[in-house]
Design a protein around this nucleic acid. Structure first.
Lengths: 124, 124
DNA sequence: TGTCAATATTGACATCCATCGATACCGCCT
DNA sequence: AGGCGGTATCGATGGATGTCAATATTGACA
């Protein structure tokens, strides 16, 4: 075990079935059923207009972070906003943190980058 | 009706509100409701495991093109495969062409690239 | 401790959607 | 023309999902 710098684990640290190397580029080889299952979840999370707007609101907020109160004006009720934020979180695209009365959501850059590469690499 | 090659339309060329610049990067500014509506359709198209596999099968096939007969083995019935391919086509991610008995689907690289940039830019 | 504001959860409901079998359409071949 | 293989469409069905009102939870503050 020489100098394998054990590495600072990159932000997301679920032990197994984690997020970072979610899959090869879409044109490298056919996705297996399991890979497709995992990856489709992320795309599906962005596949709803309200969720996409919420995500964009968080991502475009300063510091890639926003309080729920800052982004709740998307034309649906408060429970619905909460429900969608939960789904984005479950998909691994957002993380949340409570600070006093407010809850802040922030984007998970590594996951996003992985999804992006899935597509841009496939686009050549 | 001579051989008036009426011009090879460059695949994506709609003057405005077309496909290519479907939206700003997700972190540049909040998406409008209409932008979100349009963009979510594409993500939703990739948000199903079977469709994602079909897409990957086409994308990873030589020339980014495949006959339906080449990619029909994803564990669902033939009508279901056809249905999913239609959805991918409607979302602008695939195009199709009949050649004799067979129908060939191919990836639409520009749309894919646009989606990729939506994400990779947002990931910084 | 009690109240209030912010967020999450629950339960109900309507709509959407993935799936299938049956069938129609389309080209090729004899 | 008729048959046949490949693909698309139709209609039905069960399950997933977006939405809301009502309610619970959480933390701040008087």
């Amino acid at each position: 075990m020489s100098n394998l710098s054990v590495v600072e684990l990159p932000v997301l640290n679920q032990p197994d079935e984690a997020v970072a190397p979610c899959c090869p580029p879409l044109n490298e080889r056919p996705l297996s059923a399991e890979e497709a299952e995992r990856t489709a979840k992320m795309f599906k999370a962005l596949g709803d207009p309200v969720r996409l707007r919420l995500f964009s609101l968080v991502a475009s907020h300063e510091g890639g972070e926003a309080c729920v109160c800052d982004i709740s004006d998307v034309g649906v009720s408060q429970p619905t906003v909460s429900h969608h934020l939960k789904k984005l979180k479950d998909a691994g695209l957002l993380s949340s943190e409570r600070r006093g009365t407010w809850v802040y959501y922030r984007v998970e850059p590594s996951v996003l980058a992985a999804m992006g590469q899935l597509l841009t690499t496939a686009a050549r």
